[in-house]
Nucleic acid binder design. Sequence first.
DNA 1: AAAGCTGACAACCGCGGAATG
DNA 2: GCATTCCGCGGTTGTCAGCTT
Length: 300
Amino acid sequence: MGRLPSSAVQGSGLKKGPWTPEEDEKLMEYVGRHGHGSWRKLPQLAGLNRCGKSCRLRWMNYLRPDIRRGNFSEEEERLIVHHHSVIGNKWSQIAVHLPGRTDNEIKNFWNTQLKKKLLQKGIDPKTHKPIPTSHIDPSNLLLSLVAIARSLGGPSHNNSASSASNPLEIITTELAKIQMVQKLIQLIGTNTPVVDHGGYDALIRRPYSSLESQNMITTGANYPNMINIHLAENSWASSGSGTAQLPSLWPSCSKVSTESTPIISRLSAEPNASINVFEDLEKLMEDDTCASFLRDLLDE
DNA sequence: AAAGCTGACAACCGCGGAATG
DNA sequence: GCATTCCGCGGTTGTCAGCTT
C-alpha cells in the first residue's frame, strides 16, 4: 500500500512513501514518552528522516492507540451519512462523532463505498436528495442499472434489499430501483405521457406509516438519513397539496408507455407493487424498441 | 496461469486559517 | 497591522491485493 515505492528521497533529503516498522516504532516510542509537541521539531528529536507533516499523519491515521480498525458498522454508516447530509465533506467534524475513526478513514470509506451505495439508491451523495431526472448522468445511470441487474441475478434473488436488515432500507432500495428503471425509460424515450403521480405518493408514504404503527420508527431522528431524505426534505415526497410533486420519472417513450402503464397502475393500486416491478421490466424487454438497449445493459 | 481490471486505503500535496513574532 | 510559521483539513494519487477474463 501507500505511495511511492521508494525510499524516495527528494531534494529536501527527507524520506517519503510507506512507513517501515522501524520508523513506526521510533515514532510511537517518542510520542509515547514525550507527546508529539511540535510536529515540525519531532522528526529531528525522534531520529526520523521525515517531515513533521508526514509524522503527524502517520500518528493520527495509523499509530494512535485509540484507533479502531475494521469494518464500519451499520450504525457508523448511518452516522456518517447523516452527518454528511448536514455538514458535507467536513471529515474531521464527522470523525468527532465516530470515536476511534479517523477523518481519513471516513473519507476513504465514503469515497469508495457509501457514495456508491447512495447512487445505487438514486440519491445524490452531494445533496442527499433523489437525483433529479433532468440531471441524470448517463454514466452513473448505467452503473446503477448494472448494479440493479446484478442484484437481481441468482436463483435466490439475493439482492441488496432482501439482505438488508432494516425494513426502511429495503423500502428505500426498492423505490430507488424503480426510479432508476424509470430514468432509463425516460432516457430512451422522446414523448411524455400523462401519468397520475398520486400512487407513488401513496407508495412512499404507506410503508413508513405502517412502520411507525409497528413502533419500528417513532421519529425521523431514529433513521435520520432515510426519513429526512424521503419525507422531510423532498417536496415530491411530502407535498403540501396532498399530491406528490414527483420529478418526471415516469416513462416518456410512447411505445414503452403503453407497455409500462400496467406498472404504473399497479404502483398506484398495490402497496407491494415495488417488489414485483422487475417482472414488468421483463415485459419491457419484449418491446422491440427498447429490448436491445436494455439487454445490452442488463447483460453487462 | 497470466494479464488486465477494480476496489481499498495509506500517504502526499496544496491551501486556508490560527498562532506567533 | 503585517509577515512568517505551523498545523490541520480536504482532495488526490499511487500501490497493492483480490477478482475477473
